[in-house]
Amino acid sequence: MTERTTRPLTTIDVDGGIPLVRVSGSLDAAAQRPVAAELDTVFDTRPGAIVLDLSDVDFMGSAGIALLINTRHRAARLGIPFAVVAGNHRVLRPLRMSQVDTVLPLHPTVPAAVAAVRLAST
């Protein structure tokens, strides 16, 4: 298992090399840039799938929502299955209020998200 850490951001390879990018704390304008840079690095490796884990995010701002939408579009353009772990109300509430929850592949747990991208990549 490979791990890159820049707290509050961690990327590990799970389930046969699927990158799991974990974000904790706030996902707002200040945090958006390092997360976007980490996702750029992950996309550059041309992975078979990507999972973004927001389980430990305690605040989701509009910049974070924009990041999720842009990441979903980029993954779709590149044909890379993408899933978001969003099981807490601090993340789900702003996504539901902005109706972004209807266009993102949201899953309540990491195993559920990994299973979804694994299925989509077969």
Score class of each variant (00 low, 15 high):
residue 54 L to E: 04
residue 47 P to C: 09
residue 63 A to F: 03
residue 53 D to A: 03
residue 54 L to C: 06
residue 25 G to A: 06
residue 65 I to P: 02
residue 57 V to A: 03
residue 61 G to F: 00
residue 19 P to M: 04
residue 47 P to N: 13
residue 45 T to E: 15
residue 41 T to K: 03
residue 41 T to M: 07
residue 40 D to Q: 12
residue 15 D to R: 12
residue 16 G to F: 12
residue 38 E to G: 08
residue 40 D to F: 04
residue 53 D to K: 04
residue 53 D to S: 10
residue 65 I to V: 10
residue 44 D to Y: 09
residue 17 G to W: 12
residue 28 D to R: 02
residue 67 L to Q: 00
residue 32 Q to G: 06
residue 24 S to T: 10
residue 53 D to V: 02
residue 24 S to I: 02
residue 15 D to S: 11
residue 35 V to I: 13
residue 67 L to P: 01
residue 28 D to V: 03
residue 67 L to V: 01
residue 55 S to Y: 09
residue 24 S to Y: 06
residue 35 V to M: 11
residue 19 P to K: 10
residue 60 M to T: 01
residue 43 F to G: 11
residue 36 A to E: 15
residue 27 L to H: 08
residue 59 F to Y: 04
residue 30 A to L: 13
residue 49 A to P: 14
residue 30 A to V: 11
residue 39 L to E: 10
residue 64 G to K: 01
residue 19 P to D: 05
residue 37 A to L: 15
residue 55 S to A: 08
residue 44 D to H: 14
residue 31 A to L: 14
residue 65 I to H: 00
residue 42 V to Y: 13
residue 26 S to N: 07
residue 24 S to F: 09
residue 35 V to Q: 09
residue 64 G to I: 00
residue 57 V to N: 01
residue 25 G to T: 01
residue 64 G to Y: 00
residue 45 T to R: 15
residue 64 G to R: 00
residue 30 A to F: 10
residue 36 A to K: 08
residue 37 A to D: 15
residue 16 G to N: 09
